[in-house]
Amino acid sequence: MLRLALVQERARFNDPVANLAAGIDACLRARAAGADLVVFPELWQIGYAACPAEPQRRTTWLGRAEPVDGSWVTAFRELAASTETAVAITFLRRTDADPANATAVIGCDGTLALVQDKVHLCDFTWEAVLRPGERFRTAAVHTRAGPVDIGVMTCFDREFPESARALALDGAELILSPNACLICDDRLGQLRARAFENMLAVAMVNYPRPFMNGRSAVFDGIASLANRPRDHQVLASDARPMLRVADLDLDGLRRYRADGLWSHARRRPDAYRNLVGPGPAGEGQP
């Protein structure tokens, strides 16, 4: 079993110092609850605070971006190693251009296994100032429950089926989905569908009220058992601040994937060629 802890709690706007302390506290509480992997909502470092339009304040906001080898990620790497607990922590990542909306997935030995930048930015909002990720990648992450192949799709990434399929084709067994949005039934349905159609687990964590509306959820992806449909939602949260824990049967999932109907071997890639094109009549192109 892999025990996940989802930190459906508030972070302070533009206060990385306070959010570091709160994040460490959440990890320690999760470890006490037996968690193998702790997952945070989107941009926990700054509490998903919007980039200001006023130039001086915007400069200050941009200055909060942290390099991957900076103090923010390093603190969680040290914590992961000392507690033997894997962590998926979210932060504003400094790049050689615009900052990125990033998730660092850290193994229980402190190894930085994966840094994933949000690919589908909400560029109709303040996220237009960010640099989008270029591709989805999966990494083997060491946990006390053994290695797990993990990928990340951040918030709006969830709304494009190609995100989860790309991760599945790259070998993901578990997709983590840090969020900062209002979760409705349709968005939960997206998560259920991504888990179902790709035969993998999906864990989504969101901010609680009053900032967002919680509803953090886990789907274990085992959608049938003994040839009968099965409800594979193993965790459903309300809107309150809370640390939620869910167990994933990794061995059961791996058996299911080996024998399942929706295996990659049954795909027909030649029939899907238009999926990698720009869209109807050049949609989405300049």
Rank of each mutant, 00 (worst) to 15 (best):
A65M: 04
C122T: 10
P210V: 07
S177P: 06
D231G: 08
E159V: 01
R144W: 08
R266L: 11
G63K: 05
R94P: 06
A128N: 08
I89A: 04
V205S: 07
T59M: 09
M1H: 07
E197D: 12
R192E: 15
Q285P: 01
D157C: 11
R29T: 00
R273M: 06
A195D: 09
E162C: 08
T111V: 02
D186M: 14
A164E: 09
L225V: 12
P16S: 13
P55F: 03
W61L: 04
Q233V: 09
A217Q: 11
A53S: 12
F124R: 09
R12T: 08
D220R: 08
A265H: 12
A203Q: 03
L43Q: 10
L250P: 07
R257N: 04
G214Y: 01
A49W: 00
M204N: 13
T90V: 06
A32K: 14
R228M: 09
L169C: 11
T90E: 03
G277H: 08
Q45N: 09
N19D: 10
G284T: 03
G277W: 00
A65Q: 07
D96V: 09
M212F: 06
G221D: 05
D170A: 15
A166T: 08
V245G: 03
H120N: 12
V119K: 02
K118Y: 03
G70Y: 02
P208H: 07
